[in-house]
Design a protein around this nucleic acid. Sequence first.
DNA 1: TTGTACGCGTTATCAA
DNA 2: TTGATAACGCGTACAA
Lengths: 351, 351
Amino acid sequence: MDERGVAKARRGRPRQAEVARLAGVSQTTVSLVLSGNKQGIALHPDTRARVEQAARQLGYVPDPAAQRLAAARNDLLGVFSFTATFPTDVAHSYYPILVGVEKEAVARGYDLVLFTGSSSAPPQGDGAGSLDRVRLADGCLFLGRHVPAEELRRLVEQGYPAVHIGRRDELESLVWVGADYAEATAEVVRRLAGLGHRRMVLVCEQDEALASTDRERGFRAAVGAADGSVLRAAEPAVEITVEWLRAQLAAGVTAFVAEETDTCAAWRALLKAVEEAQLTAPEDLSLALLGSPPTDMAHPEPTGFSIPKAELGAAAVRTLTALLTSGAADYSPLVPCEFRPGHTAGPAPAT
Amino acid sequence: MDERGVAKARRGRPRQAEVARLAGVSQTTVSLVLSGNKQGIALHPDTRARVEQAARQLGYVPDPAAQRLAAARNDLLGVFSFTATFPTDVAHSYYPILVGVEKEAVARGYDLVLFTGSSSAPPQGDGAGSLDRVRLADGCLFLGRHVPAEELRRLVEQGYPAVHIGRRDELESLVWVGADYAEATAEVVRRLAGLGHRRMVLVCEQDEALASTDRERGFRAAVGAADGSVLRAAEPAVEITVEWLRAQLAAGVTAFVAEETDTCAAWRALLKAVEEAQLTAPEDLSLALLGSPPTDMAHPEPTGFSIPKAELGAAAVRTLTALLTSGAADYSPLVPCEFRPGHTAGPAPAT
DNA sequence: TTGTACGCGTTATCAA
DNA sequence: TTGATAACGCGTACAA
């Protein structure tokens, strides 16, 4: 008794029972009134008013855990990222995505819970930051490629509504939403071809990431009649040299395409080689970047495409909420990127 | 029966009861074994082994909702900001704070819930975004000066653990954490005095914000022997003119200090006047900015101080968690700012 | 139209 | 050393 009293006082959060007492009705009625009366049960207007008044007065808010336990829903969407959601070093990588996530979630009446993977204090479970925490929310968005596959698999296989942001194919059953790198890359290639470029080379880093191979696929698909080759450089700074560049030019290559990565090493090496060769784009050759440039090298604006991160976040929320309501999502996972004209590509030099 | 069976199947995850059946023990024992046996109750090794084996076999994971219901806490910290948490227009204003909040929250085993003031879908509450929503979390951080005082008061008076980021004095009982503008400003003034400046003027906007009056207080306190005056300009662009500047200089003023605000109108007007007077800092006069410059005017780096936003966020989390665990916080609300030498202040010109 | 009774999965108390 | 049993706060058939 005492215990309970103390606990009550300590947390001081009003519950339905207290609202009921104040309103002079039963707890059931309170639940009925406050949960929107989904069952369409008839309620006396006065009763409803009294309950609402009492709830307001007490500042009642439903306990998400209890709601979830009883009704299996609480209108909470999780956002799980293995690394910090608000990184300091990596230049605000997730921020633009979160902008879209928040906007869409709010618009649909969901609140957001941020779960961070590197969480300490493993309650009892499977070693480090267990994904299972996200089950508190009705569904969850997963962010970044470091989300542990095994745990994630179990989660989705047990029917937990999850959407991964970024393509993710190892898991058959995992729903994901990602940028359409292949098509965006193809578009860039077509534009270059339209500018008269016949031989072009794609420079990328040695990375098995889907984001990378997707670009390569789009590149290969689009070069078509033109002549394209791909260089996967383990160490861009070393392999992409002035000599290499000159050799390519001598071989008739007029356009160079690089992929965006965390470091943008390929793009950096490319620019450096061009500068050292005392060439300038877009006069002497054309350059394109498959993605957005890091802030420190935004000038000149690279020709290429922009990843619609906010839209990606919004699309993910739409997919997740569809999953929550309809059970299954009839969705198109690929979000188109936007072509960015930029100033580093121009007509191919006359031969 | 059927209902339950379906529900079970639908959510499809093993619970303690099933583990218990498989292990041939009671559900209580399972809980005891799997929840780490906090009470230090003695367990037979065999029992423990059997239970663990069964749990593994079934892939049991505790239901966080149930755990939190029973524990009467959910290890969730709220972050409430009246404007969108992720603003697109205002240049990421809260971002640096959130960085600190997340870091500290993660370190302490809490997850974050984001509440947006402008949220739609008011469930039952007081018209627009009722603060009561935050009760969902164990405690909440409040961000920005537009948090409705009345609602906030009720919340804290009812014992809800809340911490406001930024000084907030109207509410006696409200716990807050803020930057020490007064001391930081005093420090800047002292530095200027050390450079030989004897007459200086503080330029600020007509704003009753504490952030502003704190700076003024620090300024007045520190000018001491020196001679300082304060101009509160309703329209900085109009009042802070070349003529005004010349008059000040003629009167012997050698240093001008402006406060940082959303718009930085005072600082902008000051720089403009200096430029129009064809003067340069720090040669002809010294300038200081009490805060961080907007990104579009980061050059030359203004002398002044930087607000440790991440640290502010972290401090707020520490205070809140102290409130949560100890019930009350013995804390120091003021976070020191860091002096920024910059390049706009120098020795006072010889008289 | 409202109230009773029970279950959701877990933790914690107290007997056995 | 283990097992009933009672909360935790809420939703919901079912009875009144």
